[in-house]
């Protein structure tokens, strides 16, 4: 067994152990912290699978932003951790559930082992049509060109997510701002941290977005980093979340999918089909769309984490 293989096996056990911790940990807070660690380990697994784009996304969104969301929720749910006796499952049900889960996992493992080492692939087709897009990163090409329809609709899902989260506001808070108000005197340590980190982070976020055309990175990953910077500044209470009724906020939330959709429809007029790019203009158009998508992701993720409006709207 080579060193790398030994590391793989160790990593696999570690991921599994931390995952088991998040399921069986005594308290929800401990479980949530376990989940964040798990997400970081998982991005290492993605690197070992040579999927660097995915690793970046997993670290930024799967572990990072989701981690903030869940830890925040766990903190606010303190006091609700105890399970009333009538809701606890009986031993027999647990046993049955465990059996079922083992069965599913075993069947899945068996099928995974049966998959051929050299499986079917769309890698050659992707590379063949990559030049048309003017991009160098085939994953970005799949997201923004070959399967752009998926990506555009997934951006609509994010908008619906915001609508759904906001719909949980009390009526009197509708149109108000979520989260906490800007502090008169922000916590000095956190404020310092945010002031130092935010400019660097914004630079990194824009960089990750920009290189995404040719190297690992792109709108999702860059947008998530930008989102994290805004969240840190809000957490430090240097600024506060905007009002849900603000027109500019609504515009920012829909800009990504709206520009994408408009470009898709324009394709039907100028390039002979919905979501087709005119030859030669593909790359600038793709970068144009991605810019708006990055911006929208950077605004959407913090809004999803901030939750429904909790303060009365100011006129």
């Amino acid at each position: 067994m080579s060193v790398l293989q030994a590391l793989d096996v160790g990593l696999a056990f570690l991921v599994f152990a931390v995952a088991a911790w998040t399921v069986f940990a005594p308290g929800p807070f401990a479980a949530t912290v376990g989940y964040v660690v798990y997400g970081l380990l998982l991005s290492l697994v993605w690197i070992r699978l040579f999927a660097v784009d995915v690793a970046l996304t997993e670290a930024a969104i799967g572990s990072g932003v989701t981690g903030v969301l869940l830890i925040g929720a766990a903190a606010r749910l303190r006091g609700a951790e105890t399970t009333p006796a009538e809701e606890a499952l009986t031993g027999l049900t647990r046993l049955f559930a465990a059996g079922l889960c083992l069965l599913v996992a075993a069947a899945l493992a068996a099928v995974v082992l049966l998959l051929p080492d050299q499986g079917p692939t769309l890698a050659p087709q992707s590379m063949e049509r990559l030049p048309e897009t003017g991009l160098g990163n085939p994953v970005t090409a799949v997201l923004i060109a070959f399967r752009s329809f998926d990506t555009m609709l997934e951006k609509v899902v994010l908008v619906l997510g915001v609508v759904g989260v906001w719909s949980l506001a009390a009526d009197r808070y509708w149109g108000g701002a979520p989260g906490e108000a800007r502090a008169e005197r922000p916590e000095p340590t956190l404020a310092f941290f945010a002031q130092v980190l935010a400019p660097i982070g914004i630079l990194v976020g824009v960089h990750v977005f920009w290189v995404g055309a040719d190297e690992p990175g792109g709108a999702f990953q860059g947008g998530a980093i930008l989102a994290a910077m805004w969240m840190i500044v809000m957490m430090a209470r240097l600024t506060e979340a905007p009002q849900a009724s603000a027109f500019w906020l609504r515009l920012a939330l829909i800009a990504g999918p709206a520009v994408f959709l408009a470009a898709g429809v324009a394709g039907a007029v100028v390039a002979g089909g919905f979501f087709a790019y005119p030859p030669g203009l593909a790359k600038p158009l793709i970068l144009f769309i991605e810019t708006f998508m990055t911006f929208t992701i950077a605004v959407t993720l913090p809004m999803l984490v901030a939750g429904p409006p909790r303060r009365e709207p100011r006129r």
Partner: peptide
């Protein structure tokens, strides 16, 4: 350097 910054901040906050 970034890990230093984050570590120092987190340690401060936890300590407080």
């Amino acid at each position: 350097a970034l890990v230093q910054l984050a570590g120092a901040t987190a340690a401060q906050l936890i300590g407080r």
